[in-house]
């Protein structure tokens, strides 16, 4: 299987997104340049973290107009899997691949920390490797991660089971403020209605090597490997 990692000029999580499938799964991964028009037949597209075009205007607002994004949207419309981490999630929302928007953290501060998440769905092609209700730990690192949408959208997401990860108190630790950015309904990650596009603020691609901390991101990559026919 080949993962294609889109490199926007200000992407900086592209390296981690490239290394994760290679090191955790032994699969192939290549970079896709933002000015290109060709996805080079990759099976899975990853929109990585970073600051796509500086994001001085609004995270992802310019990236959606880049040449490669036309191809990514077409790939998603064909049912191809797209995984969007952090800035990628912001871009996916701007590009209309996912509903809602990511606003400035409620604290107005960038937050980098390990965070507890509850796996809400295990029947997606990204999460079958987890257990329903499992509490996992992944790193977050963002300044604009407050998921927001109108009530109708939120109800639809709840009703259709599109909320995949929620920030959650860790049963082993004190339940202090566990929602790190003020996201509505503690939403950390969602899928689109078709279930082939995942957007999430936490970074599973940074959690695949036990040397660096809990390797709870591995199951996400394994799920993709097990579900995507090559």
């Amino acid at each position: 299987m080949t993962f294609g990692i889109v490199t926007f000029p200000g992407s900086n999580g592209d390296y981690d997104a490239l290394r994760a499938p290679i090191e955790a799964l032994g699969e192939h991964a290549i970079y896709l340049w933002h000015k290109d028009h060709d996805l080079q037949n990759v099976d899975v597209v990853i929109l990585p973290g970073g600051f796509s075009y500086g994001d001085y205007l609004r995270a992802g607002a310019i990236a959606r107009f880049s040449p490669i994004m036309r191809e990514v949207v077409a790939h998603a419309e064909r049912g191809g899997p797209v995984v969007a981490f952090c800035n990628g999630f912001q871009i996916a929302c701007e590009a209309g691949l996912l509903p809602g928007a990511l606003l400035r953290n409620a604290s107005l501060k960038f937050v980098c920390a390990p965070i507890s998440l509850r796996v809400e769905r295990t029947d997606t092609l990204f999460t079958s490797g987890y257990e329903q209700g499992q509490i996992i730990t992944l790193p977050i690192a963002h300044g604009d991660g407050r998921y927001s949408a109108d009530d109708a959208t939120l109800e639809r997401l709840e009703g259709d089971g599109q909320i995949v990860f929620r920030y959650a108190p860790d049963p082993l630790q004190a339940a202090e403020a566990y929602n790190p950015n003020g996201s509505m309904r503690d939403i950390a990650g969602i899928v689109n209605a078709q279930g082939n596009v995942l957007g999430m603020m936490p970074h599973p691609e940074r959690a695949v090597d036990p040397l660096l901390g809990p390797a709870d991101g591995v199951a996400l990559f394994e799920s993709i490997l097990n579900h995507v026919a090559v």
């Binding site: 960038f110 691609e205 090597d209 660096l212």
Partner: peptide
């Protein structure tokens, strides 16, 4: 406030 996990 500093990203210290990037570059894994």
């Amino acid at each position: 406030q500093y990203d210290h996990t990037i570059r894994t």
